[in-house]
């Protein structure tokens, strides 16, 4: 990371940490939602951007983690801490199993298998009404209170989310910049050469898939704690596609890209939609604009623009 972007990131972090002091409750809650979406998009970016594996089923892990937490706290009487741990384990196990099958294919095949898997879970959430309460969803879910701190207030929950978000980004950044991350990019660009060099391409992909599933599980945990309600629509194809859009719009394979993309989508969906009736159309226009101006996403586009300006000065 260059010094400029480090300073930028730190400034942004300070501004974010101080947000509850200058923004109203609504904006604090909106910011929490954006952070949750950003964790989700960043975890998907590991697959899409660094692994070259486009998944259309990533919201399944959000759903699994959210449903495990919801069920354990409301039906099984488990404490939130136990339920949270179980939720993450659940999402990770599901990712292990799905990865084994889905990674038999790449490209379109991989996309279709992930889509099919997430649709199976979505259908299960609808049908298995004795556990998931079907279309009525599970409500009355308590928020967890780490170290006895109540997260029921908007600001408290926001800070907790922000803290987890920083950990998530650090962990994802460390993963991407490690030697393993380099190997992962290798499997994306030259899978056959990587195999010839003695790397186990499928194992590298599988580990990434599980790691991405785990962080999506973290996003799911925050999602269910934020909403205190879970409905099958959380793992719908729409949610998976929104994550994918965030990655692509922001710039896949960059660390900041998914964050920018997720922010863009959440703002359009939840904020601009109050003023623009046809916000779906606006979302479409924004994406067309991004594709025309910066086909590889906002962040790479900005980088190019910055380089051009700097180049012009010389």
């Amino acid at each position: 990371m260059s010094r400029a972007s480090l300073i930028l990131a730190l400034t942004a972090l300070v501004a974010l940490a101080l947000l509850p002091f200058y923004a109203g409750e609504y904006f604090i809650n909106l910011a929490s939602q954006i952070l949750i979406a950003a964790i989700f998009a960043s975890s998907l970016n590991l697959l899409v951007g660094y692994g070259g594996l486009t998944s259309l089923g990533h919201a399944a892990f959000v759903g699994v983690s959210a449903y495990v937490f919801a069920w354990l706290t409301t039906h099984a009487g488990a404490g939130p801490a136990v339920a949270a741990a179980a939720a993450l384990v659940g999402a990770t196990i599901v990712a292990c199993v799905f990865g084994l099958v889905a990674l038999r294919a790449t490209g379109l095949g991989f996309l279709m298998i992930t889509l099919a898997f997430s649709q199976i879970l979505w259908g299960l959430a609808y049908r298995w009404a004795s556990v998931t309460n079907g279309d009525n969803g599970i409500s009355g879910i308590p928020r967890f209170s780490p170290f006895g701190l109540s997260l029921d207030g908007a600001a408290a929950f926001y800070w907790f989310t922000l803290a987890l978000c920083v950990i998530a980004f650090a962990a994802i950044a460390a993963f991407a910049s490690s030697a393993f991350g380099a190997a992962l990019r290798g499997t994306r660009d030259e899978p056959r050469r990587m195999a010839a060099l003695g790397h186990d391409v499928r194992l590298i992909r599988w580990i990434t898939f599980v790691y991405a599933g785990f962080w999506a599980g973290v996003a799911g945990l925050l999602y269910v704690n934020y909403n205190k309600f879970i409905h099958p629509s959380a793992m719908s194809i729409t949610n998976s596609a929104e994550g994918l859009l965030a990655v692509i719009a922001g710039g896949s394979g960059t660390l900041a890209g998914p964050i920018v993309g997720a922010t863009l989508i959440m703002l359009l969906k939840n904020y601009v939609s109050a003023y623009v009736e046809r916000w779906n159309m606006l979302l479409g226009f924004v994406f067309v604009a991004i594709v025309l101006i910066a086909p590889d996403g906002v962040i790479p586009g900005l980088r190019r623009a910055a380089a051009r300006i700097r180049g012009g000065r010389k």
Binding site: N227, F229, S233
Partner: peptide
């Protein structure tokens, strides 16, 4: 959408 209903 339930989550959007909540946000709204």
């Amino acid at each position: 959408v339930p989550a959007t209903a909540r946000t709204k």
